[in-house]
Design a protein around this nucleic acid. Structure first.
Length: 465
RNA sequence: GGCGACGUACCCAAGUGGUUAAGGGGGAGGUCUGCAAAACCUCUAUUCAGCGGUUCGAAUCCGCUCGUCGCCUCCA
């Protein structure tokens, strides 16, 4: 079986074949660091994470690049409002982004290039477009891409350039474009804006050019996969294609993958709409990072995903179910012979899991395979038909699948001595059938985030998280 | 106005021509248990927005209607 992915350019699911056998090059549009990212942003980042994790799970080596946009109108505006440099603003929110990345269990991209550190690459690219006649200068020192010079313009979004509703909101005073549909590669210098002195003049880069320059710098003129939210299809990705392909005459990207929006209250989560939630807010509300992660990846990436208290609650319960199973497996002891049916059970689960994800990262059936396995393992634990070694094998199996999902708790660390003493005391109280003491210690431990449960294998604990 | 996606149980969400319509959450009952928690078992869509059509057979294909959302503008 092969991996199949939905390519926006083709408008269809296509079999995935890396340009270079065994190695996949992926570029994801990352955050603009003008404020803390919201979980809608993270849906798209986690979708890219899932893609990368799965490609690696399937034995492919992956080079993953995610940019950080650290110069743009919003950052400039924010910095001006605070009276600080754009570097101060972008550094602050870059840190906040990286902290969220860690919290939410997102794989660190191999390269996270910043726009301001790649001005020379952008200047080279713009210079090439000027030479080739795809770009022109205006009186204020700006440089625009002439879309009329590049016929395939509009194809990614299936928009007819002639029929585009343009002009309605174009800032008339902005620049003297030849055609309102042309987009800025370079913005001429303004007194209160950051500016770079370069071979193409002074000014600052337009938004789209950074992604072309940085993706090609790290992944070459043609690479495998480019990801982003559906809202980036037009104009951002269309513009990237135009400026890249006009400069290189090569196909820029082989597969364009776009994820649908996270919705809250029936609408796209967006700062402009005001219906946003941030990672820190949600965690402050008592939701575990793993539950948040699951809530954000639990639907197919091309489907709108409803987000809210219900989805978080549902994800939290699902996570608890997984945690409980792992705790049960870890404390399970039985000298019975190995369960002869276990290998087939695990193989079946893996096959279903892989078949689902091979199909354009269809995560719902993949999760179904995991939870069906959870039920089957719980049955065997209840019936005590698996051996101690089987329990270990099952744990290892689930942890292996979790290389893709990232929702399983860290392997059991030991408790600190104080908590361990409380746990031991409670076990002793139970042996002594001192239920009052046992119940009191259970409460004390729960307040410390340790849930104890009594089973045939004795008392076991897990972190409330 | 143009382009696109979607409408499956109380909620979320798979399934896209053919045995009993996945899975998660929630709810009801039961088993187990010092209690609790967990787990397990049973039940919770004769039906897939509506109406027509194609077919031996459709949630799945076609048409129309209704509804929701997104893109066309900064946006993950």
């Amino acid at each position: 079986m092969t991996i199949r992915l939905h390519d926006t350019m083709a408008g269809a699911v296509r079999e995935f074949v890396p340009l270079e056998p065994g190695h996949v090059r992926v570029y994801s549009c990352g955050p603009t660091v003008y404020g803390p990212a919201h979980v809608g942003n993270f849906r798209s980042f986690l979708f890219a994470d899932l893609l990368v994790r799965y490609l690696r799970y399937r034995g492919l080596s992956v080079t993953w690049v995610m940019n950080i946009t650290d110069v743009d109108d919003k950052i400039i505006k924010g910095a001006r409002a605070e009276g600080v440099s754009i570097a101060a603003v972008s550094a602050r929110y870059r840190e906040s982004f990286l902290a969220d990345v860690k919290t939410i269990g997102m794989t660190m991209p191999d390269v996270m290039p910043s726009a301001t550190e790649h001005i020379p690459q952008m200047v080279d690219l713009i210079g090439k477009l000027l030479e080739r006649g795809n770009a022109y200068r205006t009186d204020d020192g700006s440089i625009f891409f002439r879309i009329a010079s590049w016929p395939p313009y509009g194809r990614l979004a299936r928009l007819d350039p002639e029929g585009m509703r343009v002009g309605e909101r174009v800032d008339a005073d902005e620049y003297g474009k030849d055609d309102v549909r042309d987009f800025a590669l370079w913005k001429g210098p303004k007194p209160d804006e950051p500016s770079w002195d370069t071979a193409i003049g002074s000014g600052r880069p337009g938004w789209h050019i950074e992604c072309s320059a940085m993706s090609m710098a790290y992944l070459g003129p043609s690479f495998d996969i480019h990801t982003g939210g559906i809202d980036l299809i037009f104009p951002h990705h269309q513009d990237e294609i135009a400026q890249s392909e006009a400069a290189t005459d090569k196909t820029f990207v082989a597969y364009w993958l776009h994820c649908a929006h996270l919705q809250m209250g029936g609408q796209k989560m967006a700062k402009s709409t005001g219906n946003i939630a941030r990672v820190a807010d949600i965690l402050a509300g008592g939701v575990s990072p793993r539950a948040l992660r699951l809530a954000l990846i639990s639907a197919h990436y091309r489907m709108g995903l409803s987000f809210g208290d219900d989805s978080l609650q549902s994800a939290s319960s699902a996570i608890d179910r997984l945690d409980t199973l792992l705790a049960a497996l870890s404390s399970y002891r039985d000298d019975c012979p190995d369960d002869a049916t276990l290998p087939a059970l695990l193989d079946g689960a893996r096959e279903a899991f892989v078949a689902a994800l091979d199909d354009d990262l269809n995560i719902s059936p993949a999760l179904a395979a995991v939870f069906e396995l959870v039920r089957e393992l719980n049955r065997r634990i209840d019936a005590r038909t698996i051996s101690t070694a089987d329990a270990g094998r099952a744990t290892e199996f689930i942890r292996d699948l979790d290389r893709v999902l990232g929702i399983v708790p860290a392997a059991d660390e030991s408790l600190d001595t104080e908590l361990q003493k409380l746990v031991d005391d409670r076990a002793a109280a139970r042996t002594a059938r001192d239920w009052a003491a046992s119940d009191r210690l259970r409460t004390v431990l729960a307040e410390r985030g340790i849930l104890v449960e009594d089973t045939r294998d004795g008392q076991r604990w897990r972190r409330a998280d």
